[in-house]
Simulated scan of single mutants.
Amino acid sequence: MSEIRMLRTFLAIEKHGTMAAAADRMALTHAAVGAQMRTLERVCQRQLFDRSGRSIQLNDAGRSIIEQARMVVAAYDSLLRGVADKLSIEGSITIGSTASSMGFLAANVIQLRVSYPGLKVRLTHGDSAELGRQVRAGEIDAAVIVSEPRVTTLPELWERLYDEPLVLLVNPAIAADDASVTSLLKRHPFIGFEAASLTGTHVASLLRRLRAEVNPILEMNSIAAIADLVRQNVGVSIVPRLRHAAWDEDPLLSVRPIPGTAWRRHIGWYEFGRQPLATAIVKNQLLAALAE
């Protein structure tokens, strides 16, 4: 439910102090957090934030509903657990995911086994287009897929989970501290993201905007495989920064932000028609994990 996600974001702002910090914790853009809070203010018919200073802070009205917001979110989580316990959730569902999001999905599904031992969740992977087709055909129950931010045809079916900005991946052996992004792109072989894909299209557009000269060596449609080639110092690449990959702790990878790019890859939950309660339980687990 989008209202519950909105309240989780509101509570994240209160917990972490700023909208920027909440955006990071909730895996949303700052603009998305701002839009959610404006919607919450319209629903509550009052201003909840003081916007007069350099930073946006909760005002008295906002602080006055904190406990109620906590109660609503806790009640929703308890509702799902309670209904599930009452119905003794059992049986099997199938959830799909792109390869790059599978680790996040699988880790949370494993956690669900403790609370719902009778629930069997089978995971399958594929690209977003094929997973979307499978969901609409009823072949799988739901999926974690990539979607354009301007999607308007699926307002009730797709819910954004988190975003991934484009970054430059380079081996630390060649990542001199004073080297610019365009310099690294020009001096080293470039491992491209498959041009026909959504991400590949935006990478190509970014290279044009940067007026970056590149020396293409190959194209791939696997971020994990591209990262592995960068570790081997085969070349450099521009890819979405995987939210759940520990690249910052990887001694063989250097992650560089890219100036001049605002595009982010949007990862969301996709379902079609009436779904079993078990799918809501899985989605709620993912949202709760992102809010922690």
Rank of each mutant, 00 (worst) to 15 (best):
A61H: 08
L157G: 03
L112V: 02
S64K: 02
I145L: 08
S88W: 01
S101L: 02
M26L: 10
A84N: 01
R133H: 11
I66E: 05
Q36R: 14
T18Y: 07
H202S: 07
N221D: 13
E3V: 07
L7Y: 05
N215Y: 12
L123T: 11
S88E: 11
G273I: 09
G34T: 10
A262R: 15
A143K: 00
T98W: 01
P259M: 06
L184V: 05
A27H: 08
E130A: 07
D228Q: 13
P172T: 11
D250C: 04
V230P: 02
S100Y: 01
W263P: 00
S128N: 03
I191V: 08
K186S: 10
E3Q: 14
A21E: 06
T39D: 12
G17W: 13
A35M: 14
P240R: 03
G53W: 14
Q134D: 08
T94Y: 00
T279Q: 04
L252H: 13
S52T: 13
P251F: 07
I140P: 00
R160H: 12
L242H: 09
V181Y: 11
A61F: 12
I238R: 04
E219N: 10
T124N: 04
S147W: 03
P172R: 09
P259Q: 06
Q57G: 01
V239K: 01
I217G: 14
L105I: 11
D60T: 03
N59S: 03
F49A: 00
A22N: 02
N221Y: 08
L253G: 03
S180R: 10
H30S: 11
R150G: 15
P155A: 05
P257E: 09
A278Y: 07
K120E: 12
T98K: 04
A74K: 06
T261W: 14
G17D: 09
Q47C: 05
Y116W: 15
A142N: 00
G96Q: 05
Q57R: 08
L166N: 05
W158D: 02
P189D: 10
N284H: 09
A129I: 10
L168D: 08
L119A: 02
G268M: 03
S128E: 00
H188D: 06
V282Q: 00
D248V: 01
